[in-house]
């Protein structure tokens, strides 16, 4: 009888550890999501300033500027429950902002404008923070998703309704190989 009780107790402790582990992983992923949210908000706050400066010089780039505005609005509207959709919009927004920064090179007056220089520096800083937040998020989500997919934690995850979370993938622009000629 005692052996049975010890066995049941041991199983209970094991289940509790597995349960606690998966809850910790989900909380860590949520914390990472909150971190990325803060950094993305910094980007959203910076965009109107960049667009305002750029509009004064880039009369021929209205399509690009409009697309950035549209993506920013759409990304802000996407709630936390639609993380995958939101990450897609943010990636597209980052692509367009990257194009804008490259386009600035073709406008010498804009390129040398002090406000634009400061905005570009801040943009680079914000993007570096977003990249760091994304690495933390992806690392936390990867640990959670492994737990959700691998037995026995997968069983517990299913029982308490924890599912996988989407990764925040690098943009196509980031993934593509750097061509030194673009920078020469």
């Amino acid at each position: 009888m005692l052996e049975i009780l010890i066995f049941i107790g041991a199983i209970g402790v094991l289940i509790w550890f597995l349960y606690a582990g998966i809850i910790k992983k989900r909380n860590k992923a949520n914390e990472a999501f909150a971190g990325i949210d803060v950094q993305l908000k910094k980007r959203h706050d910076l965009i109107p300033n960049i667009l305002q400066i750029a509009k004064r010089f880039m009369a021929h780039e209205t399509e690009l500027l409009s697309e950035i505005t549209r993506l920013r609005t759409a990304a802000q509207a996407a709630g936390a429950d639609k993380a995958g959709e939101r990450f897609g919009l943010e990636s597209a927004l980052q692509d367009q902002l990257g194009k804008l920064m490259i386009a600035v090179e073709a406008y010498p007056d804009l390129k040398s404008d002090e406000a634009m220089v400061n905005a570009q520096r801040t943009y680079a800083e914000v993007e570096a923070h977003i990249a760091a937040a994304r690495r933390f998020y992806n690392s936390a989500v990867n640990a959670l998703n492994n737990a959700v997919h691998i037995w026995p934690t997968s069983m517990i995850a299913r029982m308490i309704g924890i599912g996988e979370m989407p990764l925040f993938e690098a943009t196509a622009q980031e993934r593509s190989a750097v061509d030194a000629r673009d920078h020469l």
């Binding site: 990472a32 950094q39 923070h129 990249a131 760091a132 937040a133 690495r135 933390f136």
Partner: peptide, 10 residues
């Protein structure tokens, strides 16, 4: 700070 650590250790 997990994010700052990754910001530093790119």
């Amino acid at each position: 700070d997990q994010i700052e650590a990754r910001y530093l250790l790119t």
